[in-house]
Design a protein around this nucleic acid. Structure first.
Lengths: 201, 201
DNA sequence: CATCGGTTCGACCGGTGGTCTAAGAACTAG
DNA sequence: CTAGTTCTTAGACCACCGGTCGAACCGATG
């Protein structure tokens, strides 16, 4: 997160920095040259490091700002039955995709985030984030198993790895479908794929 | 691939270079410092670049040498029925894992390869390799569909993305199970997971 | 006016992968 | 044996990367 000073900076300048960074990261991913990004803001390197600890700090700030409300809630929701479980999950997906359609740069950032996470370019903060995601997903799977919605015939770590891989593949595929006419149908398909792989049989 | 000169180099020196590189890449992945790797071979930078175009060239050479016979065959096998299809696939997995157990460094290299591919650190050559893998997997899926073994109710690109994600997750998980007692059982589980997700229903 | 904290700036650092030229080694022709 | 040519080696050098740091600047306060 940015140094407290950043809040005291001229709001116009704040907006300038964040919008330049958002555009850069969304378009080119985390791999974009920080030197170049800084130059694009018009600030000097020293000033940039005066407000943000480092590149990751700025990246995460941008992510938080653009996708804060979309990001995984700390607690998985609590559903009462297997049907509710799948319907609720389906609802989460819908919400997410609708939000992506309204904020196109969020989709770009999401791609950048997935990519940077994969790459391991982000240090402790994102490792923590990844653990949070794993824990959230793991909690979800356990809940689903308790409700009899999720299969219990696989080792938990394999199930989790598979679920996360499928989720990521589905997300990535859905991001390619954002502009296709039938987003709802696409979400249906991706979701059915995941459900079919994970549900109790 | 290495410059032709490399073949004319003293075999002992060849072996030295490749084994140092194998060890380095297997242990630390593609991200290992090339400068450091070169220093570890005892060669000068100039000499290294005299024999190999660049880091990727050496990496791919090492991959090819250690895992050449394991890598995807150009043509997917041809099976006659749905049962044969799944049994054949299962057999492929078994062969691969057995080989990994016999050549531990191949497992490390495999991890490095998966990782580098993900990261996009490897340029055209690996993009080509990835396309080959995609085409192979795609061909496999089409064949499976023809035999009624693989589901046909999803868009091909979604099915392919899911299959590759599942395959990668399964591979990665299996690589963590190499030292566990029951490798056969682990392959069973991972394979059943994939099969359950992809088979016609 | 002097001081002093907050702010700005860019030179600088060690690292990366990759290039290039000049010297050395080895082989060939006369 | 020598002169010329080609193959090989060595490491200085390059542009770039993310990140650091001290000097200068600026505005408010005493």
């Amino acid at each position: 997160m940015p140094r407290p000073r950043f809040a005291r900076l001229d709001p116009e300048q704040q907006e300038n920095i964040l919008s330049v960074a958002t555009e850069a990261f969304a378009a080119e991913g985390f791999g974009v040259s920080y030197n170049e990004l800084i130059a694009r803001t018009g600030l000097s390197k020293g000033s940039m490091y005066y407000y943000f600890d480092d590149k990751r700090d700025l990246f995460l700030t941008v992510i938080e700002r653009s996708m804060g409300q979309l990001l995984i809630a700390p607690e998985p929701p609590d559903w009462g039955s297997a049907d509710e479980f799948w319907a609720g999950l389906r609802g989460l997906y819908n919400t997410l995709m609708a939000a992506f359609q309204l904020q196109p740069e969020a989709a770009g950032l999401s791609r950048a985030l997935i990519d940077a996470r994969r790459t391991g370019q982000l240090g402790d903060e994102l490792v923590a984030w990844e653990e949070r995601l794993g824990a959230w997903m793991g909690g979800l799977l356990v809940q689903g198993q308790r409700l009899g919605a999720v299969r219990s015939d696989l080792p938990p770590d394999l199930l989790l790895a598979g679920a996360m891989a499928l989720g990521e593949a589905a997300d990535t595929w859905l991001l390619t479908q954002l502009d296709s006419g039938d987003l709802n149908g696409a979400v249906d398909l991706a979701f059915e794929f995941m459900k079919g792989s994970l549900e109790a049989r």
